[in-house]
């Protein structure tokens, strides 16, 4: 059982490997609670053992009542009060200002629509990857595009629901750079378990450079992309393709994973996903392109991967 639990240990998707302020305080609280629970369990076991071995009538009625009052009333109250007072400040959301970066994230079946809204620049649309600058406060505005989803980056902060027609705000601050993973934690359909995303925490200067590059249009269009009508759903800025139903593909090739954190970004995977997305993600909204010759799919995949 312990071996099975240890198999879950990792550094990229774990509340026990935090890279954000909120997740760190949650981890600390978890450790305090765990140690406290073990100490209390051991103390109670010793007390029960002592009580069983001690002959009766060793305590008077008054002494017994006193023991119950202190061990059963006063001490637990003090412990719970201390725990409450120390944990409540961790529940307070981080303060935000107008100068902070806002990222809109919308849950869709089964991917993530991401839009960066820097304070003094135009919004930048992306998908299936969330990048945050280390040390800066970021306000994540969470919405549900179709059904209820839930947004959770275990190493960064607690989870929060994405509800259609409502905007929930999650304020986060990353503390160390790295590549991590987030997931959907509200059952949202057949491919709920296949709805994840990459999270990249970057040094602020590198993040600013990346965001400036992400805001730029794509290098050029593609005849196959236009011929198969991909632009009906997908946008590639700068090419005239402006569909908004599916993920924005302007800088698709710069992402590390495909199909919302499910597959590695290889040409074979992209080509296979284009022809049969339902094989990777049951219930996906994107129709199958099984009439597309494999050679076209590979050519299209190469074009998309070139969109850095």
């Amino acid at each position: 059982m312990a071996t099975l639990s240890l198999a879950g240990c990792n550094r990229h998707q774990s509340a026990l490997a935090p890279f954000g302020v909120e997740a760190s305080s949650t981890r600390d609280l978890t450790i305090i609670l765990l140690i406290g629970a073990v100490v209390i369990a051991v103390a109670m076991s010793l007390l029960i053992r002592h009580a069983i071995r001690t002959p009766g009538e060793r305590l008077t009625h008054r002494q017994g009542m006193k023991l119950v009052l202190w061990a059963g009333g006063v001490v637990p109250t003090i412990l719970l009060f201390t725990l409450l007072v120390t944990s409540l400040p961790a529940m307070r959301p981080l303060p935000t200002s107008r100068a902070d970066l806002t990222i809109n994230v919308e849950g869709e079946q089964f991917w993530w629509r991401v839009a960066y809204r820097p304070p003094n620049a135009a919004r930048v649309v992306s998908a299936n990857e969330v990048r945050v600058p280390v040390g800066r406060t970021v306000a994540l505005k969470l919405m549900g595009g179709d059904v209820i989803h839930s947004f959770w980056i275990p190493g960064l902060a607690g989870k929060m629901d994405m509800i259609p027609g409502r905007t929930n705000t999650l304020v986060v601050r990353a503390t160390k750079p790295g590549r991590f993973r987030g997931v959907c934690t509200e059952f949202c359909g057949l491919s709920h378990a296949l709805m994840a995303f990459d999270v990249v925490a970057m040094e602020p200067a590198a993040f600013d450079r990346w965001l400036a590059a992400e805001a730029k249009p794509a290098a050029g269009g593609n005849a196959l992309f236009a011929q198969y009508g991909c632009g009906g759903c997908h946008a590639i800025r700068g090419t005239g393709e402006a569909g908004a139903i599916g993920p924005d593909l302007t800088h698709f090739g710069a992402r590390q994973t495909l199909a919302a954190g499910v597959l590695p970004m290889t040409t074979a995977n992209v080509a296979s996903f284009i022809r049969h997305p339902e094989k990777t993600k049951p219930g996906v909204r994107m129709p199958a392109f099984d009439h597309m010759p494999p050679a076209d799919a590979v050519a299209l995949a190469r074009y998309l991967q070139g969109l850095k």
């Binding site: 409540l88 529940m91 307070r92 959301p93």
Partner: peptide, 10 residues
């Protein structure tokens, strides 16, 4: 306690 400590409407 929560009312005194949270002090935030978000």
């Amino acid at each position: 306690m929560p009312v005194i400590f949270l002090t935030d409407c978000r």
